[in-house]
Write a protein that binds this DNA or RNA. Structure first.
Lengths: 343, 343
DNA sequence: TTCTCTACTGTGAACGCTCACAGAAGCATG
DNA sequence: CATGCTTCTGTGAGCGTTCACAGTAGAGAA
């Protein structure tokens, strides 16, 4: 019972093979591999040729064993509901991070910690040093995992501002408040004065900040902030529909509504149309996210674009910097108003 | 300039620490870690206690270095267009695989190989043994990567049947043909006889098989297969819309249409409604996938559910079996007809 | 010449683990 | 009592790297 050659896989060349081929020592090959300082041009070239010839690829396990680094990072999703997976933004984020890391030749480990059990297992895995850092994605923000990892000294970057974690943890976020301000200002500029809002969950930064932006702009413009015009949802389509119905009941004179996500805005459109209100003539509707849902809706949604591609790139940049020894940092990125048919 | 304790991260306990704590040797601890054979109950217990006490987690790099396995698998997406990322099924697949692997304590490495460059880099990475196997997801199927990896002896499981790779490569797929048969039979049972079809791309197994199922059932039922009732699309919404228009022009008496994806079916609905046909009264519409698009459509789509959760679970099962030395295998999973409003 | 400095190269010792092997202990068998 | 077998345990070697250190050679300065 030999397992010599299962499937034709043979032992890959080692640094030793390269050294022999190039006529130098292991040390010199290693130096070439790690930046090429203190290596003569001739040796440099001989080693590179030998690497090409042998098809050598460094054994990361051996390297990691001695360096203590793993040269990989985790993408951690701590979400009881797997809602994030249905969120199109999640895809962009995941893809963006993978690509940004690939440029540094760093693999991304996808980690899902839905249950308490998984959370424990993954925390152990991470704190044991199997990844150099963690990109954290969680919507609800009193996340114990973030706290634990931070205390264990694991480099960490969150997507969106984590509430109640102090300033010790890095994060990258879109400027929710400013985006909301843009949208509400836009609605005001259209002459609307009875502007409703369907917020996100108020235990998330997005929920809180977008509502704050709404309030600020109305106050600045001298428009009354009417509690009957404020309801909150949970980012789901159904909650948008329910929210709009409540708004219509509480404030029938509403002439615009700012909805804190495109998905909820779709629900709002449905409710408005059922109530016989025309969009945008009777009620203007503004969404948030610029997700595919925004163009799938009819009429197409005016919305706030979150710079997801830049968010992922920045998350990776900040994380790598932190792994490199820099201090935690917060990055806030600007949003953009995208005008379509619904306003 | 010491780097003793950056961020509070200290050197994790080794197998040696556990051995000392338990009063046994490294070897015994190792045996406990790897199944516990040839270990006395008392030693077993002492070691487990020591592991709990020290918080020991095995250093996978050290283990991998000697075993030659990496105890991780890659999830490889070879897609020039990043279309898959927009596909809701992709999420389910990715999540399912991650979770199924997590049960075996195996991390998933997400790999994107969009460009030729990335493809080369990743092939090198994989063939160097940095993952034990690969879950391959690519829609168009003459994929050179699959061929290369297979030749290098890397365990591999594809999602969907790869065309033209011989029987050497494992795959897991839904029974496209049978699903199509179910749908067409369903349409026949409603009394429809002029049943159109919008196929997927005919260089994909899904495209080919679903059309074959359509043909078979009509032939078996003694209903004429009319070429004017057959058009093909590319799974996009727009192509569904265009397809329906062609069908209406070529066969105005069409009373049903089987569409090879829900997204295309959405387009079909749009075109039908524009043409003044009522769904399902004038024309019944059947989709495929049971994606979120199916319930988002109005009327909600009757469709064929692909068992994505089982597909991912089976992919992982087959891959692990193959890593364990078993031969490649093909798994075909049954689909399910989901009746909604559109038929 | 001799010393020092710089640029480069080779070598042994880890890193933390598994594996093969040697041995010990217990028990039944010859 | 020796022998074999089974169950269990400890030990040394080695996986493929990097790192620290000890050289070597050549150039410039004393």
């Amino acid at each position: 019972m030999t397992m010599s050659n299962t499937g034709g896989r043979r032992r890959p060349p080692t640094i030793h093979d390269v050294a022999r081929e190039a006529g130098v020592s292991r040390g010199t090959v290693s130096r070439v591999l790690n930046g090429g300082h203190y290596v003569s041009p001739s040796a440099q070239e001989a080693v590179n040729a030998a690497i090409r010839k042998t098809g050598y690829v460094v054994n990361r396990h051996a390297r990691s064993l001695i360096t203590g680094r793993s040269d990989s990072v985790g993408f951690l999703l701590t979400e009881p509901q797997e809602r994030f997976f249905e969120d199109p933004n999640f895809n962009v984020l995941l893809r963006g991070c993978t690509q940004a890391l690939a440029q540094h030749d760093i693999p991304l480990l996808l980690m899902l910690a839905g249950t308490e059990d998984e959370r424990r297992r993954i925390t152990r895995y991470i704190t044991a040093g199997h990844v150099d850092g963690v990109l954290l994605v969680s919507s609800h923000s009193g996340d114990p995992v973030a706290q634990e990892l931070r205390e264990a000294g694991v480099p960490l970057v969150a997507c969106g501002k984590p509430i109640g974690l102090g300033s010790k943890v890095s994060y990258v976020a879109a400027d929710d408040r400013d985006g909301a301000r843009d949208m509400v200002r836009h609605l005001l500029s259209l002459g609307r004065r009875r502007i409703g809002v369907v917020t996100g969950p108020l235990d998330t930064p997005g929920g809180v900040e977008r509502l704050a932006g709404y309030r600020e702009v109305l106050t600045e413009a001298g428009v009354e902030v009417d509690d009957r015009l404020i309801v909150s949802g949970d980012y789901s389509r159904a909650s948008g529909e329910a929210g709009a119905e409540r708004l219509l009941a509480q404030a029938p004179d509403m002439d615009a509504v700012f909805v804190a996500s495109d998905l909820m805005a779709q629900g709002v459109l449905t409710a408005l149309q059922r109530a016989g209100r025309r969009v945008p003539q009777d009620v203007a509707v503004g969404g948030f996210d610029d997700s595919p849902a925004a163009v799938a809706a009819s009429p197409e949604l005016t919305t706030i674009r979150q710079p997801w591609d830049r968010i992922s790139a920045e998350m990776v940049r900040v994380l790598l910097a932190q792994i490199g020894g820099e201090d935690p940092a917060a990055v806030i990125l600007p949003t953009e108003l995208v005008k379509r048919e619904s306003t």
